[in-house]
Amino acid sequence: MDLLFVLLINGLATGMLIFLLAAGLTLIFGLMDVLNFAHGGLFIWGAYSGVWMYHVTNSFTVGIAAAIVTGLVIGLVTEKVIIRPVYGNHIQQILITLGFMLVLQELIKVVFGPSQKAVAPPAFLEGSFMVGDIVLIKYRLFIILIGLVVFFVFAYIFKQTRIGLIVRAGVMNKEMVQSLGINIKLVFMVVFMVGAALAALSGILHAPYSGVIYAEMGLEFSILAFIVVIIGGMGSFKGSLVAALLVGCMQAFMAYYVPSLSLATNMLLMVIVLVFRPQGLFPVKG
């Protein structure tokens, strides 16, 4: 029972990190119809820039802020320089964003050095406490909390603000949104930047969780995010949360019981969803 609970908390924490990465990916796909394989690059840049700032200032909060700012800035540049010329062409998008992903990954090694770096949680999040006879690791709860806060803040924005409504409307019908007088390019840019910032946030939060950062982790982790986007339904924010928690838990349980099969099971989950619900668990209507 205790073990199951520990694995569940692990799964939820991993799931939240995948959610932060997948949320941007799903919105960028749903709204802009862009397949962004460079998304994992934002994840590692968030991790490295955040950790660097965290170590320099000795403040994890400042590290998180630095990661978010890095995400916004690289997001802005990526949208303007890399994505804008290839709107509407999936093949070009795949090629150029995959290429850019590798560039971002290699640049990490140039800027921060090629070796992996150890990262510990800040003192106030280190260690664990007991509830009854269950051990709760603080940092994992912290990740789950941040993930929930992000989810509810964005759910509020989508439901209650004009920009949120416009984004939801844009996912359903871009042309109509433009015909109602809204500059969709501007909306694209904002969404891309916010998505990039969430990926960077995922990266910095992931660093003390795994205890180590290295340049290739972006690509590895973003595979899970892609699986989540497909399972959740492309363009669905809620779907990305549900699917991410599902994949995170699957990952945690499999990693404990049959580690060699953990990625394969998630792939299998995706295939099953694709067969029975090709539009994903929460399809977005046109």
Binding site: A169, M172, M176, S179, V284
Partner: peptide
């Protein structure tokens, strides 16, 4: 538009708000 271009998941009020 010919297909009306209604935002299907948005309420009538939200369609107007956009």
């Amino acid at each position: 538009p010919e297909d009306q271009g209604i935002f299907a998941d948005l309420t009538v009020g939200e369609n107007m708000s956009v």
